[in-house]
Nucleic acid binder design. Sequence first.
DNA 1: TAGATTGTTAATCGATTAACAATC
DNA 2: TAGATTGTTAATCGATTAACAATC
Lengths: 215, 215
Amino acid sequence: MTKPTAVSLSVVRRLPRYYRFLGELLKGGCNRISSKELSEKMGLTASQIRQDLNCFGGFGQQGYGYNVQALYDEIAKILGLDKQQKTILIGAGNLGRAIVTHLDFSHLGFDLVGIFDNSDELVGETVGSLTVSHVDSLSEFCHENSPVIAILCIPKNAAEALADSLIELGFKGFWNFSHYDLAIDYHGIVVENVHLGDSLMTLCYRVKNNPSNNS
Amino acid sequence: MTKPTAVSLSVVRRLPRYYRFLGELLKGGCNRISSKELSEKMGLTASQIRQDLNCFGGFGQQGYGYNVQALYDEIAKILGLDKQQKTILIGAGNLGRAIVTHLDFSHLGFDLVGIFDNSDELVGETVGSLTVSHVDSLSEFCHENSPVIAILCIPKNAAEALADSLIELGFKGFWNFSHYDLAIDYHGIVVENVHLGDSLMTLCYRVKNNPSNNS
DNA sequence: TAGATTGTTAATCGATTAACAATC
DNA sequence: TAGATTGTTAATCGATTAACAATC
């Protein structure tokens, strides 16, 4: 009822990038931009920008272009960055700890409320402003706090073993750094996979097959 | 001459995933699989698998399917994982350190040979089997060791400031965690971007607009 | 008003899926 | 040989680009 037609994932994935570029423009004191100018800065076509934005409504003005601040705010609202979702991290190893300290969750639409691990060495440690709890207390924590997003920084088999209960506990979305493919086993659940190894292997291929290098 | 037609990026990006699933099958003792079976495990169509693989040659056998080990080895070769490329990390902060300790570079086609940072606090520290050097010594290091891949775990402005000299020093590929868009300014250079913030924002949108939740 | 640039429709392009003949 | 499954061509689908009328 709120959404006439579902917006394609290709379009959605470009929104954060628009958001970043508009943020930069704002910082630089730019308050007006045409799809043409923006397209040149971002390395895509003006047509695509206009098509993308028009999935969500007409934010521009003929003959003028787009108001940078207004468009920036609009995209934040579309992405839903304004209302934070309660989030937990599962797996407080190197990667998990680095990720939660590296990113500013509150500005990205998330509110990190808990960190869990199964290692006694890590339980009790402080990460950012939170203390690592044992994963055994996860269920109780969820019943009390109802987090909806889980960041999975655990190995494949651990993720696989935990999946059922996570779904049971009501999680709606997963930011998945493990190699376990949640999206296949649990249909309708939103999963953003960050497969660092896959990304590296792709880089490997692309460098070795780059047409610009006459190799 | 080695490549008749360039393989599309969509196909290339699926290769690491095939590689992972085949690896799992091997571990499980499976030595033969049809595109149909594999497609069900991976959540895509059998047609797509056959199309993808046939970009690189005919690895199957009619009436039989694919030999798992042979296909696994073949994909490793296609990706170029067999010959490691000299790689350095620039930026030894939380994220940079976590990434290099988290991943097994040698199995992914890379040989990490140096780590650099501009902070005196980090220079001299040990990360994995390497010692962090000051970024001022980067140029000298490159002339001596000729690394071709750089992992960028530094802020946008630092990446921007460094870009010219990195290109100059002969880097062929970048694994980019910064928000600076190298690919726009340096055409023909291979860049794999890992935009964690973008991924999170996409997750935010998708959870809030998930048709499976009747919200 | 004239110029600029949007919103939107139509055309193109590429990627995915379906179909089936070839063949193990 | 009969059954199974590939390699490959053709059909479909979706995403990107181009064009242009609407309008600020």
